[in-house]
């Protein structure tokens, strides 16, 4: 038996909206420590992982580890039936073939319950090695969203470089070129509005903007985002979900043949 109650149910809705376009059919691994998912996108170019800690829920019970095969598009449709202030409870039996979702309004005067059919999904789990990052940048998630969106109107790929000057995003296309450089800041009113750059070595990597743009769908989950760049390795884009967990995206760099 699995049962989890989330007071801030809108986080679940935002999480599913943040990943559903990259991954359609995924396995959620449930254990007494929480809910984990890892999935590649359809083209196997990026990897999406999330963790929701058991202690981030108002109530969490999992008698034995379960794998729930979920069509995220269908789950998103169901979550559309929830109100933005609803409390969401998820339930599944150990050998059941459905996930029950219950939406309670704030005043608990309206209750919706929906059964989502589960599916059997074959998925490959990838091991992510501990990486020694060349550069780690923390910035407002709205800033990241704006950079990748703005550069998408210039080109399809972006060069991201970290140097002493800061972190530079460059795109080139038929209409011209664009560079956006972010420098470290410390003057913002709120700590999370600052840009923090920790560089161990200069690094330059090339990525498809389409995916980086897709990662920005997690913007409503967190006010900040961390971008980890490592020489010749995938970029990692992290959104921490306050008091609950995280969603992480990894994208393979483009490589000169």
């Amino acid at each position: 038996m699995f049962e989890a109650r989330l007071i801030q149910g809108s986080l679940l809705k935002k999480l599913v909206d943040a990943i559903k376009e990259l991954c359609t059919e995924v396995n959620w691994d449930i254990s007494n420590s929480g809910i984990n998912m890892q999935s590649m996108d359809g083209s196997h170019v990026c990897l999406v992982a999330f963790n929701l800690r058991a202690d981030g829920f108002d109530h969490f019970r999992c008698d034995r580890p379960l794998t729930l095969g979920i069509n995220l598009g269908n789950l998103a449709k169901i979550l559309k039936c929830s109100g933005s202030n609803d409390i969401i409870t998820m339930k599944a039996d150990d050998n059941g073939d459905t996930l029950t979702l219950m939406f309670e309004s704030e005043k608990q005067d309206r209750i919706t319950d929906v059964d989502l059919k589960l599916m059997s999904i074959e998925s490959e789990h990838l091991g992510i090695p501990d990486q020694d990052y060349s550069a780690e940048t923390s910035m407002p998630s709205s800033e990241y969203q704006r950079i990748v969106r703005d550069l998408s109107s210039i080109g399809d790929t972006v060069n991201i470089s970290a140097t002493k000057e800061g972190i530079k995003f460059s795109a080139m296309g038929d209409i011209g070129t664009a560079n956006i450089t972010l420098r470290q800041t410390s003057s913002a009113d709120k700590e999370e509005e600052n840009v923090k750059i920790e560089m161990k070595e200069p690094v330059l990597l090339t990525f498809a903007l389409r995916y980086l743009n897709n990662f920005a769908k997690a913007t409503p989950l967190s006010s900040t985002v961390q971008v980890f760049l490592t020489k010749d390795l995938p970029v990692q884009v992290n959104y921490n979900i306050q008091d609950l967990g995280y969603v992480k995206y990894y994208l393979a760099p483009k490589i000169e043949e």
Partner: peptide, 14 residues
């Protein structure tokens, strides 16, 4: 145009 490798080139199956 640089090539786009798959993510499994960097992360191995567990």
């Amino acid at each position: 145009e640089p090539a786009q490798p798959k993510i499994s080139k960097f992360f191995s199956p567990r």
